[in-house]
Amino acid sequence: MEIFIAQLISGLALGSIYVLLVTGFNLMLLVAKIIQFAYPQIVVISMYTYWWVLQFSNNIFLVILAGLSVSIILSILSEPIFRKINSTPGVDINASFIASMGMAMIAMDIMSHSINYGFPVSFPYKWIGGSILSFGLITISKGQLFALGGGIIAVLIFFYLLYHTNQGRFFRAIAENLFAASLVGIPIIKTSIFSYLIVGILGGFSALLFSMLIGSASPWLGEFVALKMLAVSIVAGLGNLKGGLVCGLILGIIESIAIGYISGSWSNVIAFVVMLIVVLIRPQGLFGTKI
């Protein structure tokens, strides 16, 4: 039982990272109308930024500012590229998928060639901290607490923005009916750029929590989590924000329990077998596609 509770806690912490990733991915899908497969790479580059700035600064605000800025800048820089792809006649959303896979590949190769000789980087103890609470086998680390707490706060703020502000209403309008949104005079491009900004902030924040949770980053991490992010989004139903919330947490828990009881190396197999089953039985996802 203690093992189960311990794994459940670590699963929820990991799951909240997946939730943040899927939320950003879904927002891109809904508002910018792109499949942003390279989004986790932005998160990983932001993690590398945290690591790099931590080498010579103890100022926590400076470190966070650097990581957040890099994520926001990368996200916004990708906007003109995706806009160009999307506005090409006869091109559908899959073009952005291929383009973002290419971007992810480039980012991964640059990291594996030029940062820390391609070796994974480890975050210092001051960043990840040790265990905060422990009862018997159950220990809660600082990273887990931050990932879970930070994830909940970020998601709450995000949903507040989406459902209780004008800007959020414009996001939902574009997500639901692009034609109607342009008819009422919502500036589509401006609102879309704003969604890249939000996703950039979300990405930088995810990177912060992710680095505290797992304490390391590697060039391959982005692709690894990108596949899971995509799987969660498909299982929940593409573009379904609330579904992504539930399925992200569930994936975290399943993986964590697999690590606790079987072996860590099986967690991927389990996640993707679940995805295949869902795709075969309910192609629209468990909660329904929203695009």
Partner: peptide
């Protein structure tokens, strides 16, 4: 001009087939 600019000038289109935001 972009549609949002045109709408802001005071032109509007009520399209065929009740184009509304159904989930709102």
């Amino acid at each position: 001009q972009s549609t949002d600019k045109i709408v802001s000038l005071g032109l509007c289109l009520i399209p065929e087939g009740h184009v509304i935001f159904t989930s709102m």
